[in-house]
């Protein structure tokens, strides 16, 4: 019996769609019981990496290890066990629209735990309460705000108390208060349950609040990884560009006399 817990490691991982890798030679260590943030510009492959870690996409090369378990030796049964130990919040929450928030949060329990329905619903209600949604348990996803759907998505991801929790942009499109609440919640979950949390995000403020470990993606691979201070001080150009971006201005107009030579497409 292989224990599925501990660090997530990738060794020489290449991921992408079709034959063309979007990321290659990815060697990561996402430490157990900590919050790791995966950063990078839009389109740099964050979501692709996440989908590969979730085994929704087949790795083009290399290996992913969850604790002692290598995905190369996965059979149907081990995959099923791994799925049971993984909670995921998708970018668009991916709640089931025909079910109430409570039914959504209870879904993994009913499908996977074999508990009686009434008990599963009670447990799900506890999780909804944890994310502050118990008053809205009987609302349909369409009837609540985007932030509430995200929180319900987290409640559903937490339903089976998974040792691994993956979140794709949990604070994208949320106001600063809700975003801070979600971050607080993630810290709490990480501390209380020793959950290994992997967050893909753009929000630097959120990163400052939650990250114990940073992974910076750029140029088809990992630009830097490690504790936040180490990464920020690494002097890697991709990292500095990300943390203090500056827009290049084109000097076109003479500030003294207001005369400008006009840049035409064929001049440059």
């Amino acid at each position: 019996m292989i224990e599925i817990e501990g660090n997530i490691r990738t060794v020489g991982l290449a991921c992408g769609y079709g034959d063309e890798p979007i990321l290659s030679d990815v060697d990561l260590v996402l430490p157990s019981g900590k919050v790791s943030c995966i950063l990078g510009k839009s389109g740099c492959g964050k979501s692709t990496l996440l989908r590969t870690l979730l085994l929704l996409e087949r790795p083009l090369a290399g290996d992913i290890r969850f604790g002692d378990l290598s995905v190369k030796e996965l059979d149907a049964d081990l995959l099923d066990q791994l799925r049971r130990r993984t909670g995921v919040l998708f970018q668009g929450s991916a709640l089931f629209n025909s079910m109430t928030l409570l039914e959504n949060a209870a879904f993994p329990l009913i499908e996977r735990s074999g508990l009686p329905r009434s008990l599963a619903r009670e447990l799900a209600l506890l999780k909804l309460d944890l994310v502050g949604l118990s008053r809205f348990a009987h609302f349909l996803p369409a009837a609540v705000s985007g932030g509430m759907r995200k929180r319900c998505g987290i409640a559903r991801a937490l339903a089976l108390d998974p040792p691994y929790l993956f979140l794709d942009e949990p604070s994208a499109g949320l106001d600063p208060f809700t975003s801070a609440e979600i971050d607080g919640l993630l810290n709490e979950i990480c501390d209380a349950l020793a959950t290994t949390i992997v967050v893909v995000t753009h929000e630097l403020r959120s990163v400052e609040r939650i990250a114990d470990h940073l992974v910076m993606l750029a140029d088809r691979g990992v630009a830097a990884q490690g504790p936040p201070d180490e990464v920020r001080g690494s002097g890697n150009p991709a990292v500095s560009a990300y943390f203090s971006p500056q827009r290049a201005a084109t000097p076109l107009i003479d500030p003294h006399d207001g005369l400008a030579s006009f840049l035409l497409p064929d001049e440059n």
Binding site: I253, G258, A260, S261, F262, L263, L264
Partner: peptide, 30 residues
């Protein structure tokens, strides 16, 4: 400007308003 330059003129712009300068800077890029 392009038309005038094609006709052989040397062309300069006189812009005083800061707003105009910003607009030109934003949209006048190559």
């Amino acid at each position: 400007v392009g038309g005038l330059q094609d006709a052989g003129h040397e062309v300069r712009l006189r812009v005083k308003s800061d707003v105009h300068k910003r607009v030109i800077r934003a949209f006048g890029r190559d």
